[in-house]
């Protein structure tokens, strides 16, 4: 759990998290619940050629606070409010290269505020509200099945 490279970064996030939690407490009990931890292994109960089936935990978490650990894929901009979270670090940038494609089990992350990005080799933990079901991003045309919105991230698992 110790991450010598990002001590101050982690502190800042914690403080922000604390503030956010305080605000949430005052706006409603349901949204202040502890985030349900998800993993890439438990997003789908069936993973087949004919399509994927959301797992019961994903279905039950729709609209609620979740957290998940993954790798930030190369985003569209240096400072981004939108990035793609992947199970493994991507060797490729599907946005930049024509012969690349995204894995099927990605999660799109919309940050509460634009933030600097980290190297794709770094694991991040994303926390936010889960959106379930097909959606097309109005700005990029990007199709996604799972989104974590109003999200924050920190380095490390």
């Amino acid at each position: 759990m110790t991450d010598p490279h990002s001590g101050s970064f982690r502190k800042r996030i914690s403080r922000r998290g604390f503030l956010a939690a305080s605000l949430l407490l005052s706006t409603g009990r349901a949204r202040a619940e502890a985030p349900t931890p998800l993993t890439f292994d438990t997003l789908y109960s069936e993973f087949g050629v004919r399509g994927l089936v959301f797992s019961p935990i994903v279905k039950a978490s729709a609209g609620r606070a979740v957290s998940i650990v993954g790798y930030m894929a190369p985003p569209l901009k240096a400072e981004a409010a939108f990035f793609v979270l992947t199970r493994e670090p991507l060797a490729i940038c599907p946005f930049c290269q024509s012969d690349a494609d995204w894995p099927s089990d990605i999660v799109v992350v919309r940050l509460a505020a634009a933030s600097a990005i980290v190297s794709a080799g770094t694991r991040v933990t994303v926390t936010g509200r889960l959106e379930v079901g097909s959606a097309v991003d109005p700005d990029t045309g990007f199709v996604s099945q799972l989104r974590i919105v109003d999200a924050q991230y920190r380095r490390g698992p």
């Binding site: 790798y71 190369p74 670090p89 060797a91 794709a120 080799g121």
Partner: peptide, 18 residues
């Protein structure tokens, strides 16, 4: 093998730490 991963600077790649 995953030889390199995207670096923090856009459009650059660095050795895969793994």
């Amino acid at each position: 093998n995953v030889p390199a991963v995207a670096g923090a600077t856009k459009g650059t790649y660095v050795e895969n730490p793994k």
